[in-house]
Write a protein that binds this DNA or RNA. Structure first.
Lengths: 215, 215, 215, 215
DNA sequence: TATGAATGAGCCTTCATTCAT
DNA sequence: TATGAATGAAGGCTCATTCAT
């Protein structure tokens, strides 16, 4: 279950090469179809070393889950600034952090996505738990310190928060779907951000109170 | 490409057992990892029969796509009544139809989901096309004959429609996630419907105009 | 080991259809690769009947050996006229009988050929023995009543007989090889016969004594 | 298409065991029916190694074709001395070379024979071509530098050459047939050579001119 | 008799894992 | 440490044979 310490004694570069090769292979093919042969070939190491470092394909997979959760924690959640009390603005900020994180770690999100869907492998409870803790943290980051007085009074604010969140997730999913088969590095994202901000304005208009001073 | 007619001569029950076993295996494991051995074991038929009926794993998969698209057409799309002009009410109706369809055909939706994601198998264009036709029909069923005058004038109505749709999809996904590992037949869905209707009311409140006569 | 008598109660036509289908399949593919499915399809009978008549693929094969040996006896050996005392003329006659027999029973010779080569199946001794009896008969037909005085005195006549026989077999094999992939029914055999007769004349010239009376 | 270099790093003995096992299996059963299971069992190697070395059954087969053509070139054709102008002596010499080659490489000739007959596998043109080049070389080695003045004038010399060649092939085939099921290493071939030389003398007597000086 | 659906052993091939070097 | 050769279980699929109808 534990990986061999000697892995950490490798060049950082070699570690990275191995991890990226594995993430890529798992993200693109899923757990079962992923080939350890392909991984060692792409990583440029001998077949035996993969199993020396990680014992088994399964342990490698579990290691990667932890790795991705760590990365996500550091490069995503810790960068979310919870001082912004405006919920829609908060979501906007999160979207921006997420975009950077995704560009920097292209396989991580896909890998985590495939991990959630994966039912082929019996993932130990501990890993699911860590993931759920991250989800909980996600909620905290999302709702902590939000100024609910901005919302109109004639609807339940918690419901409103959820509806807004879902709207935004829906937009992002649709975008991901559209861009799925394109080369991300060649895309000009500006129009998408503009469109996104347009939607955010609508959300503010319908869910927030009319601004007093504005009148 | 064509399946063996003798399959249709089987007990309806046996046909169902085979189809369900295959849908389940594919939905849970994806095309490549799905094991025909597992399917025959779960279906309780001999090893050779699967290939006698369906020639190959691939043809079985394509058969299932068609089967699921047919089911979905008949038991989902054809039951949506487009006479209802109120968008939120329309969504409510669709949710109800979808719930029945899902309870009756528990693996179909999962399978179709896995089919969309599948990159392992080169699915013939015709199948993708049928699926896209269904998606187009879906839009028709969703937006056809909707009364846009119900919406408030200070936001773009098309944006509003999208935001509402995403909200509702978000709610449904969250629900599915929560209920994923429970035995559906033992659940009392009433509280969930109540919660759902609550959300719909909020959407009406925020996105629709104040009703004239009400004042 | 014995085939089911009911086979003989079938229409002669149906019997023929089955036998020809089986001979063709075995001759073209060899014992192992021959498909009983293909045989029943070509014969136009149900899968079960083949095994009802012949018990097993192996027994069918053995039946066909006997059948071909019988045919060969009747349509080949019995038609060779051993009154011709001139060895080369005898061989010429045999070649003509063989050609007719081959045209009438296109698969029989190929099948017998494949039977001799076959080491995949342990053919019972009895069948090999019958085949060897036929070979013995072949020798009889070939050498019986031959006028050895025609041969020159300075070489061993038995050796000469063998050498002549091999020469002719060599010619025939080469011809078969050349014609292998052509449609026999479209070939004009006359030039080949002329060439063959040319070789026979050479054989007479070199192996026979100078004719007395001719001088 | 290329075989794994590691095959060549094996003990020569192990290489031989594998090659011989494969040649035997293919020669005796043909391409389709030959079982890779049988080959690995006879070669005493693990199931996966055959595919590690040779990728596929087909590539193994193609490798063997090349291997046999190489062997035949080196151990058969290159040893034929075309300085001997006497055709019968040439054939005698060829027979001796062939015998050595056959004893040293018992399965090669059988395998090549089965390769020619093989219709199951679409053998790449290059292989057929190499084989045909060998056949062409064979003709060269057979007829090059032959002194045709030795032959009697009253028959066509080319016909005579063919008839002689067929006679000798016939003798060899008959011999092979007779010895087929015996253990070659225990046979004393001397009497067969004596018999063979006897036949050669007859051929000289009948096809050559009477020697001038002898009279 | 006659059919063809049903079975399961065996086919070639892949791949995670082990181990000699 | 590091390699990659070696193993064998499992994969999809075929096919002679049996059996319910």
């Amino acid at each position: 279950m534990e990986i061999n310490q000697s892995f950490y004694n490798l060049d950082i570069d070699k570690q990275k090469r191995i991890i990226e090769a594995a993430l890529k292979e798992f993200a693109e093919n899923g757990y079962e179809k992923a080939s350890t042969n392909q991984i060692v070939k792409n990583a440029g190491i001998g077949k035996g070393m993969l199993f020396y470092y990680f014992n088994s394909k399964e342990d490698l997979y579990l290691f990667l889950i932890n790795y991705c959760l760590d990365i996500t924690m550091v490069e995503f959640f810790q960068r979310i600034d919870t001082n912004e009390p405006d919920f829609v603005e908060r979501l906007k900020q999160i979207a921006e952090v997420k975009a950077k994180y995704h560009l920097k770690n292209p396989y991580v999100l896909n890998f985590l996505g495939s991990f959630i869907l994966n039912e082929a492998l019996e993932v130990p409870k501990a890993y699911r738990k860590r993931y759920e803790e991250l989800l909980a943290l996600s909620n905290l980051k999302l709702y902590e310190n939000i100024d609910k007085t901005l919302f109109r009074k004639d609807v339940d604010t918690d419901k409103a928060l959820k509806l807004i969140q879902w709207s935004i997730e829906g937009y992002q999913n649709e975008l991901i779907n559209q861009l799925k088969n394109q080369n991300l590095s060649t895309i000009n994202f500006d129009p998408y951000w503009a469109e996104f901000y347009g939607y955010l304005e609508v959300l503010k208009t319908v869910y927030y109170q009319k601004e007093e001073g504005a009148k």
